[in-house]
């Protein structure tokens, strides 16, 4: 999967949205993702989805995957950095019977290999293997201080039934990490 997003430092979201030509944009955001932003976003997306003639199971999946994606950004935000590096982007769009959820946030450069290998390992799993892995991590009982479960990527992969796209953009101090989840309306 190839991501079409190319971010200029100051034009991340604008550039990103412009690249999603022909997409129906449900929501897009550029800023610091806090609990209030998550709450407002979830309320907005639920209202917008309720107006659409889509199967209920798809509406539920979009909502559920978005919850995980947003909370993933929230749990891994650069809390001790300047606001510039705490900033994230996200968008939910629909195009040709597919939903696209993008999130982008800064990471320590040292975390890049870990995140990359986590996603690569998830993307390699068969339908049966993902269930086994999910149950294994569910049963380990480990929850981080912030409430992270270690199940986020697996959950998004399992619910979307598509591989998770990603791209890392190296900047001077940190790396900007973009995650792309695709959900087929008819799958």
């Amino acid at each position: 999967m190839f991501l079409i997003v190319i971010f200029g430092k100051m034009l991340r979201l604008t550039q990103h949205i412009n690249n999603l030509t022909g997409h129906d944009t449900y929501i897009s955001f550029d800023g610091v993702v806090d609990v209030e932003v998550i709450n407002t976003t979830l309320q907005t997306i639920e209202e917008k989805l309720s107006d659409k003639a889509l199967p209920k199971r798809i509406k539920r999946k979009v909502y559920n995957i978005l919850v995980e994606a947003l909370q993933n950004i929230f749990h891994h935000r650069m809390e001790n950095e300047t606001l510039d590096y705490q900033r994230s982007i996200f968008s939910v769009t629909e195009h040709e019977n597919k939903f696209h959820i993008y999130t982008g946030n800064y990471l320590e450069k040292a975390a890049v290999d870990v995140v990359k290998s986590k996603i690569d390992n998830v993307n390699k799993l068969t339908k049966e293997q993902v269930v086994i892995k999910y149950r294994e991590i569910l049963d380990d009982g480990i929850v981080t201080d912030k409430g992270g479960s270690g199940l986020g990527f697996l959950d998004m992969f399992r619910k979307s039934k598509n591989i998770l796209g990603y791209k890392f953009y190296n900047e001077e101090t940190y790396t900007f990490f973009v995650l792309h989840i695709t959900l087929n309306v008819n799958k």
């Binding site: 539920r60 559920n64 909370q71 009982g141």
Partner: peptide, 10 residues
Amino acid sequence: EYFNTSSSKC
């Protein structure tokens, strides 16, 4: 109706 992965462990 919905639960996140943080809730699943709980």
